[in-house]
């Protein structure tokens, strides 16, 4: 049985979307919403003779982190690569909408109460983005999710948790970038274009998608931490991710806004400096970037534990 306590020490990487959802919030507090028993399956996959799943590959629900209602969205990579179609997209949109309505209803009460119970959104990404079998619906859903992230700005923190095997790519890579806080393990990856597509576009000499070390150096948690894209690098247990989420739930909204990479003119100006830096450097490998930022021994960083790594890594700072 997947009890909360046994889940805590489980590998995030190896866990299912539902185990992650249950384990990311306080013991026994998770209620799944539109779970498998509701049988909201994709209306589009059967026509193509493609297997369906009762939750369409996305677990949504609500739990608690202390007094904070935590709206959880957890993608399942083993079902069609965690791809987002009409139903899964609607579950994401519905959950974000719910977070906003919980925020608004708490505003009706005292300010202190509203602050103490400020909701938080946790999104565990495991996806390549749009589900091609229902591509147009998936694409339109992505835009709705982005729209809601903007609605939630300065109200409800949205935390991206990226510790899955597939990581977060494609259109969902934009979504993750647009969240407030990004938490990653070194075993997961975040980007836009997957390694196979880069290899196809640039040739194998430029990028060998079968080179696992290269793939992780380019989009893995450690690199994203150095680039400032990942705010917190954590270990690979569900407890590691949950504790980090709990920490964010207690931070002030001003502090959280300050962790964003994008979402304001100031943030865009800082990113433009990074792009200019890269244009001058023309890195052939992410370690060229690490060195240019003052990390003299990239190999040492690659081998370091995530705790040690966070102490010694020099990060991009505009």
């Amino acid at each position: 049985m997947s009890t909360w306590h046994t889940l805590q020490e489980r590998s995030f990487l190896e866990s299912s979307a539902r185990q992650r959802a249950i384990g990311l919030v306080d013991a026994g507090s998770f209620s799944e919403l539109v779970g498998p028993l509701e049988r909201f399956v994709s209306p589009h996959l059967p026509i193509l003779g493609e297997a369906i799943e009762f939750d369409d590959g996305i677990v949504t629900g609500v739990g608690l982190l202390g007094k904070h209602p935590a709206i959880v969205i957890s993608q399942e990579g083993r079902f069609i690569g965690g791809s987002v179609g009409e139903v899964g997209g609607a579950k994401m949109v519905g959950a974000l909408k719910l977070a906003l309505s919980i925020f608004e209803s708490l505003q009706q009460g005292s300010a202190a109460e509203a602050e103490a119970r400020r909701p938080i959104v946790l999104i565990s990404f495991e996806t390549g983005g749009v589900r091609l079998h229902e591509a147009n619906a998936g694409l339109l859903a992505h835009a709705e999710v982005m729209d809601l992230l903007q609605d939630l700005r300065r109200k409800v923190p949205v935390v991206a948790l990226i510790g899955s095997k597939i990581g977060c790519f494609g259109g969902m890579g934009f979504i993750a970038a647009a969240t407030d806080v990004i938490v990653m393990s070194e075993f997961s990856r975040l980007g836009l274009t997957g390694p196979e597509v880069i290899e196809q576009e640039m040739g194998r000499n430029e990028f060998d998608a079968s080179d696992r070390a290269l793939v992780f150096r380019t989009t893995g948690g450690k690199h994203k931490f150095i680039m400032g894209d990942c705010n917190f690098l954590v270990g690979d247990t569900l407890a590691d991710f949950r504790r980090q989420a709990q920490h964010v739930a207690q931070m002030s909204m001003i502090e959280i806004e300050g962790m964003r990479r994008i979402g304001s003119r100031g943030a865009v100006e800082r990113q433009m400096k990074l792009v200019a830096f890269a244009a001058d450097l023309r890195p052939r490998d992410s370690t060229d970037m690490w060195k240019a930022l003052g990390n003299k021994e990239p190999q040492q960083l690659i081998a370091a534990s995530e705790e040690e790594f966070q102490k010694i890594a020099v990060r991009w700072n505009a």
Binding site: S16, A17, G35, P36, L37, A51, I52, E53, F54, E76, R78, F79
Partner: peptide, 18 residues
């Protein structure tokens, strides 16, 4: 009342028993 188990990965299945 009901239990759900499994993920519809490739070569895999899920089940609801009610």
């Amino acid at each position: 009342a009901a239990v759900h188990y499994g993920v519809v990965g490739s070569g895999d299945m899920e089940v609801i028993i009610e």
